[in-house]
């Protein structure tokens, strides 16, 4: 939870440095509430990216969370009015925590709700503190956006360690770099995301073919 608070503070500081006051950080944390994409959204907003770019990026970055929700269709399904809230709060972190829970049914739901609720509170508090801190800190925080890169590298290392096949990770790096060289800094993100997704769909189909 300490790292959760820290990452959201870094987010608040980054928003402040990019010229968005703390209430924007709070608004995004309240409505979008998704760790990694919130950082990218900040850089897209300060680059005045088109709404379409933002939408497509959000789609690709958060598509992984389809697979998180999937694990909890049964659990959340029986949670009544708390269900939409549980869906909304399904992030990388709550997923990781919920996966480790081994409890009787009734108790498990209670705990899952609390995990979701407090994680979200921590996240919003951190974002506001970060925004205010960013205002108070007298010297330039230029470069603080690196904490976003650091977060992605950490997620990447985690995924690398869990995977038995590193082709997807390497394909992502390779295609990302090639697209950067071809399309340039401001244009490469969408082609890279689309090409790598198509490549992996094809790769997946071929793998299935050989497995049958």
């Amino acid at each position: 939870m300490c790292s959760y608070l820290f990452v959201s503070m870094a987010y608040g500081i980054l928003m402040e440095e990019s010229g968005f006051a703390w209430y924007y950080s709070l608004l995004v944390s309240l409505t979008v509430y998704t760790g990694a994409f919130q950082f990218v959204l900040t850089t897209l907003l300060s680059a005045s990216a088109s709404i379409v770019t933002i939408a497509v990026t959000a789609f690709f970055m958060n598509s992984r969370q389809i697979f998180y929700s999937l694990s909890f269709v049964d659990d959340f399904g029986s949670m009544g009015i708390r269900k939409p809230y549980m869906i909304h709060t399904m992030t990388d972190e709550t997923y990781a925590v919920n996966c480790t829970l081994e409890l009787p049914d009734a108790e498990k739901k209670q705990i899952m709700f609390r995990v979701a609720f407090f994680s979200r509170c921590y996240w919003m508090i951190g974002a506001v503190i970060g925004g205010v801190l960013g205002q108070l800190i007298p010297f330039s925080m230029e470069g603080i956006d690196f904490c976003m890169t650091a977060l992605f590298v950490i997620i990447f290392v985690d995924q690398w360690e869990k995977a038995d096949n590193h082709f997807p990770a390497l394909a992502g790096l390779g295609i990302g770099i090639i697209c950067l060289l071809i399309f340039g800094e401001n244009q490469f993100m969408l082609p890279a995301l689309i090409i790598v997704s198509m490549l992996l769909v094809l790769y997946n189909v071929r793998k299935m073919g050989t497995a049958v």
């Binding site: 990694a36 990218v40 690709f60 970055m61 598509s63 992984r64 389809i66 697979f67 999937l70 690196f146 976003m148 890169t149 992605f152 590298v153 997620i155 990447f156 995924q159 690398w160 995977a163 096949n165 082709f167 997807p168 990770a169 390497l170 394909a171 992502g172 790096l173 295609i175 990302g176 770099i177 950067l180 060289l181 340039g184 800094e185 490469f188 993100m189 890279a192 995301l193 790598v196 997704s197 992996l200 769909v201 790769y203 997946n204 189909v205 793998k207 299935m208």
Partner: peptide, 27 residues
């Protein structure tokens, strides 16, 4: 099954593209 497998392989590729995005200024 194919969707499950895609769910296992896609996230790390997307994270890799994001890391390149973060370092794009290097070019």
């Amino acid at each position: 099954d194919w969707m499950k497998r895609l769910g296992q392989i896609l996230p790390s590729a997307i994270m890799a593209v994001l890391i390149v995005y973060c370092l794009k200024g290097a070019k």
